[in-house]
């Protein structure tokens, strides 16, 4: 059995705002084994990017505090000193493809320079070796030598996304966080990129955290799915259970809102709007919008119930409670 690479225990992140403290990530816990892919799905603004950036300590200026534990290969990395973290963990062990990154490639810099940059800037590699490694990585993601010398505007959207993926992989990290890596691409290009990510995962034994709001693409990569709602992981399960036997009210309603082209089922959007993270609802945070709501949901925050093998959900459905 593969080893646990990354483990989060009650990880929380909060920001300072004019109206008070905003808890964007609250008590998040999960474990990831080497080579495994965890998809994080959830509504816009529920804290997915904050969680991802939090793992990498890429905080905005108005960070209030973080708490909890993050272990990488058993080492507690949240307590590492900043310079130690930057030198030994960030990019070299855990890297990230940022949401919208392909549109923020530097327009006046050849792509091979941009891919080499993390090696030179973060890892202190000399230029020649960095370019060599960058070219190898570009060819691994399917960008030939001649395209390496081009500028971003000369590349198609799919190629730009490949470049961004190469940037995240060039440092040979163990864990790669992908924040919406395909949501800007047409379905054919998207399928191409997902194929690439599948192949790379196998070849390099990568562990992915894959953030997406797209339920269909989730199934292309995920071994496990974490559903976030209002800053919390409300359900964590093997991918099969996520699709076939969801256990949280939000997950059930989310799956009912997914359009597919092949069916003409009437889509049910989830009524109401996402809760304020500054003053979240009492009890289950989803209760004001949940079609299965019970009295207890309004009063008492549900604990993480075990719903099956490696399947957990913070929801009273199917639980006996006094």
């Amino acid at each position: 059995m593969a080893d646990v690479v990354l483990k989060l225990e009650n990880f929380s992140v909060s920001y300072k705002t004019q109206k008070g403290s905003l808890e964007a990530v609250r008590n998040v816990s999960f474990e990831l084994k080497e080579g495994e892919t965890l998809a994080i799905v959830g509504e816009s603004g529920c804290g997915k990017s904050s969680l991802a950036r939090g793992i990498l300590r890429l905080f905005p200026r108005n960070l209030e505090k973080t708490s909890g534990k993050i272990y990488l290969d058993g080492e507690d990395i949240l307590s590492l000193k900043e310079d130690n973290f930057r030198k030994n963990i960030l990019w070299s062990k855990i890297s990230m493809v940022f949401q919208g990154a392909m549109n923020s490639l530097n327009p006046v810099l050849k792509v091979v320079y941009q891919v080499a940059e993390p090696l030179i800037v973060h890892m202190g590699m000399d230029k020649d070796s960095a370019f060599k490694r960058a070219k190898e990585m570009l060819s691994l993601v399917g960008i030939s030598e001649s395209f390496a010398e081009r500028y971003p505007f000369e590349l198609s959207g799919g190629m730009k996304q490949r470049v961004v993926i190469a940037m995240a992989l060039v440092t040979h990290p163990k864990v790669v966080i992908l924040d919406e890596p395909t949501s800007a691409l047409d379905v054919i290009t998207q399928a191409n990129i997902l194929n690439l990510l599948k192949v790379l995962k196998k070849e390099l034994n990568l562990t992915y955290i894959f953030i997406t709001h797209d339920i269909a693409t989730t199934s292309e990569l995920a071994d496990k799915v974490a559903v976030m709602y209002a800053g919390e992981i409300v359900e964590l399960s093997p991918a099969e259970n996520f699709y076939n036997s969801p256990a949280h009210g939000y997950t059930m309603m989310l799956l009912n809102s997914v359009p597919t082209l092949k069916t003409t089922k009437k889509l049910k959007s989830i009524p109401g709007s996402p809760p304020s993270l500054i003053s979240p609802p009492k009890g289950c945070r989803f209760h004001p919008r949940c079609q299965y709501v019970m009295d207890i949901c309004r009063e008492k925050e549900p604990p993480m119930f075990k719903k099956g093998e490696e399947h957990f959900a913070k929801c009273y459905i199917g639980e006996s409670h006094e």
């Binding site: 892919t37 047409d186 379905v187 054919i188 998207q190 399928a191 191409n192 997902l194 194929n195 599948k198 192949v199 339920i215 269909a216 693409t217 989730t218 199934s219 292309e220 990569l221 995920a222 071994d223 991918a239 099969e240 996520f242 699709y243 076939n244 997914v258 597919t260 082209l261 092949k262």
Partner: peptide
């Protein structure tokens, strides 16, 4: 080609490559 590339959610998708 575009229409047939639309993914359908199915957790077994992760074990195979897509045709494009």
């Amino acid at each position: 080609a575009l229409l047939s590339a639309i993914p359908d959610p199915d957790p077994s998708n992760r074990f195979k490559l897509r045709e494009v």
